[in-house]
Design a protein around this nucleic acid. Structure first.
Lengths: 237, 237
DNA sequence: GTATGCGATTCTGTATACAGGACGTAGTAC
DNA sequence: GTACTACGTCCTGTATACAGAATCGCATAC
């Protein structure tokens, strides 16, 4: 594992590094929507030359994290209400199908099954914790691992790649909005239900509950938005 | 239109041109799966320098038309039976949803409605023609226009972009396989049914028939494949 | 005859230099 | 005082040069 990581960091091109750096900063909201990303400043900041920086920007543009205006340059993409709707509608189309495939895979692959079983008990443990900042963080970290496990268990390559490409958008949206402890409660319970159905081999329920979970998530985001921008949801960039 | 095309060709960067050239050649099967795409030969062939050529290759790799091995270069991506299944399964997930949105859009937008009405009558006209090479070509050209109209009428940007990215794969698959006149017959009829439901505003039927159409298409491809590679389906590249 | 090692060639990954276009600003004219 | 124009600066798009890695072929040793 260590050797793997070492050879990875050796194998990673500078374009990969710059791409990952920028993607993480955009995900975390450190680079606010609308921030200009000119190449030369990035060359200074990253130490790479313009060629890898260019490639990183193009890749980010393909992922939709960066808007590229032909002779004007790159900016961190803005987040509109419509884009949030689009994102969750699209996830609602894809992720239930992915959960379905993951359910089938977990029924066959014992190691995958153990992995989901373990995450299920972690969700249960979080459920018993008192609401706190740390609890929310733990939940999101676990939910991320769960989502990646589902992605990894998705047989269909197109489906897998497309969902994976959406994750930075989802993460960014979470980091741009505020944590709603009540929503975390519900979300933990929803993940438990999905885990149970998945482990039970009930793909229909697992997929259905995933769709419901996404619908409730976007509902919460919009409700919090309706409280006004003073509440912290600062999407217009 | 002419001025538009002129300004377009002025606006298009060399990277765009190289990208389009290669994509078309891959779609048409002129560049067979597995063909190495080294940068220097492409520089000579296209007249562009390495930078735009690189960008075009990276873009094609992101679209899945080219496989990029880290320190080894680019090859036209190979087409496996699994990748065909994956492609059509994924399309079966996305395109019914897109047809649904197009149905809603056509109910509101009169110009869009006229466009679909006109294509419906073109399908009907093709149906009455005698089977021939030209008839198949006319059908595929029209089916392409129909698909693009649906894509254009898809509100959800993620859905629209993802489906659009799949089209080169579909086109390539068609050009790598042989035309099955019997399948064209059925396919024309299926498109008529979809058009009718779409124009009638019946999104459920339009979506359902789209899913059926895709399922039958992939079935035909696999059946023709089962007849053996001598039949012309030369997918292994 | 076969296997192994060394060398040459080719290619990618990266850096950098150059040209053309866009935007902002300042100055001038009305 | 305002609007328009011209100039300067910045930035992208493109070309090209250089270094390191990988692969292929050939020669040699067993």
């Amino acid at each position: 594992m260590t050797a793997g990581a070492a050879s990875e960091s050796q194998e990673a091109s500078k374009a990969d590094l710059v791409h990952r750096l920028l993607r993480e900063q955009i995900e975390l909201g450190e680079l606010a929507p609308g921030t200009p990303l000119s190449e030369l400043p990035l060359v200074e900041r990253t130490g790479a030359s313009r060629t890898p920086v260019r490639e990183a920007l193009r890749r980010l543009a393909a992922e939709g994290l960066v808007d590229l205006v032909p002779r004007q340059g790159a900016r961190v993409s803005r987040v509109s209400l419509q884009s949030v709707r689009d994102l969750f509608d699209f996830r609602g189309l894809l992720e239930p199908a992915a959960v379905r495939q993951a359910t089938d895979a977990a029924a066959i692959d014992p190691q995958l099954r153990r992995s989901f079983t373990s995450m299920r008990s972690e969700f249960a443990r979080i459920q018993r914790r008192a609401p706190s900042q740390a609890r929310s963080r733990a939940f999101y970290e676990l939910a991320d691992r769960f989502d990646w496990a589902v992605i990894g268990a998705t047989r269909n390559e197109h489906l897998r790649r497309t969902i994976a490409e959406l994750r930075p958008h989802t993460t960014r949206l979470r980091n741009l909005s505020h944590v709603d402890p009540q929503r975390v409660d519900v979300s933990v319970a929803e993940h438990l239900v999905i885990c149970d159905a998945l482990l039970r081999g009930d793909a229909d329920v697992a997929a259905g509950k995933t769709a419901e979970h996404l619908a409730r998530s976007v509902e919460t985001i919009f409700r919090n938005l309706a409280r006004g921008p003073g509440d912290g949801l600062d999407l217009l960039g």
